[in-house]
Structure formats: C-alpha cells, structure tokens
C-alpha cells in the first residue's frame, strides 16, 4: 500500500493522533502547573506530587489498587493460562459455546457486568453471614474480568506457534512433562507475560466494576479520582492521574516491545 500516501492522509492521521493524546497530555501538563484553580499556566512545579505523599486517602487508595491489581492478576494469570492451554490442546463438550462466553466480558458494557456482580454478591450476602462487599468482592470481580483477556492473548500466541514443535520434542525423547517444561511453556511465555500485563492495566484502570462491587472502606485510585472529579478536581488529583497514566502506558509499551521481539523470531 505504498501508493496511498498522500500528504492529506498524513495530515489527517497526525491530527487524529493529536486528538487521541490531547486529554492525556493536558492532565500531565496540569499536574506540573502551579495554579491551583483555573486553566491558565502559571509556572512549573512538582509540588503536587510531593504533597501526594502526605495524602493519607490517596496513599491508602494506591495501596488498595496495587494490592487488588496484583492479587487478581496473579489468580487470573494462572486460571487464564491453564484455560488457554487446555482449550487449544484438548477437546471438551461445549467448547465452542464457552469460547463465545469468554468474549462476553470483552464486549459487554462494563455497567452491565458491574450490576450483575452486584446483584450476585447481594444474593450471596443473604445466605452467607459475614460476606461483605469490599476488597474480596472487588478481587473476585476483577479476576472475572481478566481471565478472558489473558486466555485470548495466550491462545493467540499459541495459535502462532508451530504445533509440530511439540512433536519434535517428543521425537527427541522428551516426555509430556519435559515437552511442556522445555518447549510449550517457553513458547507461551511471551503471551502469558503480555496477557498478564494487560490484565494488570485493566485492573489498575477499572472504575465501573470496582465502583459497584466495592464496599465501605475499600477505595481504589479510580474511585478516588471519580469522587474528586465529582467534587472538583485538585492538582493533586492531576498528579495522581498522571502517575497512573505513566504506569499504564509503560506497561502497554512493554507488551508491545515483547510482542515485537517475539514476532521477529518467528
């Protein structure tokens, strides 16, 4: 498609990129702005970042967010990887149907999943004394959200690999376990890493599902930002948001880098 490179297309594309990154850039810029109110630039400062360190609510929320993201990603990675491996290697009745079920969380509006889980947890609470909405329910909800993403990424990676490699390993004297350990797992690894990193960002950024499945006391950063936005934004929130932006973007770049490296190798 070398023929279609008119300067007009290029200009339009660049404008679209500017459009895509404008909101991110604005938040980043404002996090360094001296001005407490208004949209005028009054000078550079890192004061807002430093003040975050004294903000107990923000620190607690950050801790909650990280704990939530790490726990749920860990569980979802194990479950999702096993699922992807099982689904790409073995048959079971209803596999096609389940394949479609896996895509539900990808397409479904967040809010529907959120209220469905809220209803479900409310139901469980009726029968299970002591079951409270909070970190546990949020973790369960996030794992549900993450499993399909990891499974889809890992399966795509497995589909890219030559199925004969496992036969070659068996041919060279490796039994099933050695084949898995020395061939299948190393080949799946880029997919697992990419999938879990994406799942981590998913959990880090999720607001809607967390908002509905959380309980009193378990606030995450996105929930904190939401309530701040509703009440009125402070530059501290800009700083906090910028930090999340940078972490997410860095994760995605890492994933892209990993994918680029493994794709060249094929």
């Amino acid at each position: 498609m070398k023929t279609r490179r008119s300067p007009l297309t290029g200009l339009a594309a660049v404008l679209v990129f500017v459009f895509l990154y404008a909101p991110l850039a604005v938040v980043l810029v404002f996090s360094f702005n001296v001005a407490r109110h208004g949209t005028m630039w009054e000078g550079f400062t890192v004061d807002w970042y430093l003040r975050l360190l004294d903000n107990q609510a923000a620190l607690a929320a950050a801790f909650n967010t990280l704990q939530l993201a790490c726990t749920s990603t860990l569980f979802a990675t194990c479950l999702g990887t096993a699922l992807a491996y099982g689904m790409s290697r073995y048959e079971f009745p209803g596999k096609r149907l389940f394949h479609h079920v896996l895509h539900i969380p990808v397409f479904i509006p967040d809010i529907v999943l959120a209220v469905a889980l809220l209803l479900f947890f409310a139901l469980v609470r009726k029968f299970l004394a002591g079951f409270e909405l909070g970190m546990t329910t949020m973790t369960l909800a996030h794992i549900t959200l993450q499993i399909p993403f990891i499974a889809i990424v890992v399966r795509a990676r497995m589909a890219d690999c030559d199925p004969q490699l496992e036969e070659a390993a068996a041919d060279l004297g490796a039994g099933p376990w050695l084949t898995f350990r020395h061939v299948t797992l190393p080949l799946m690894m880029p997919g697992i890493v990419a999938g879990s990193l994406l799942a981590f960002t998913l959990s880090l950024d999720d607001f809607v599902v967390s908002f509905f499945t959380t309980g009193p006391g378990a606030t995450t950063l996105p929930i904190l930002i939401y309530s701040s936005v509703k009440r009125g934004i402070t530059p501290e929130i800009h700083a906090l948001a910028s930090l999340i932006l940078v972490v997410s973007a860095a994760t995605v770049v890492t994933v892209a880098f990993l994918r680029g490296r493994t794709e060249v190798k094929r």
């Binding site: 030559d162 004969q164 490699l165 036969e167 070659a168 068996a170 041919d171 060279l172 080949l187 190798k265």
Partner: peptide, 20 residues
C-alpha cells in the same frame, strides 16, 4: 512405545526448530 521412547529421530519438513 510413545514417540519419546522410540530409537528413531525425525527431520521435519519445516524443520520444527525450537525458536527459543
């Protein structure tokens, strides 16, 4: 005997070299 216990080895058509 499974493949890994047979005293035979194969050169595959697309070589099936381990990319990693």
């Amino acid at each position: 005997l499974p493949a890994w216990k047979r005293p035979v080895n194969t050169v595959f058509q697309n070589y099936a070299l381990f990319p990693h």
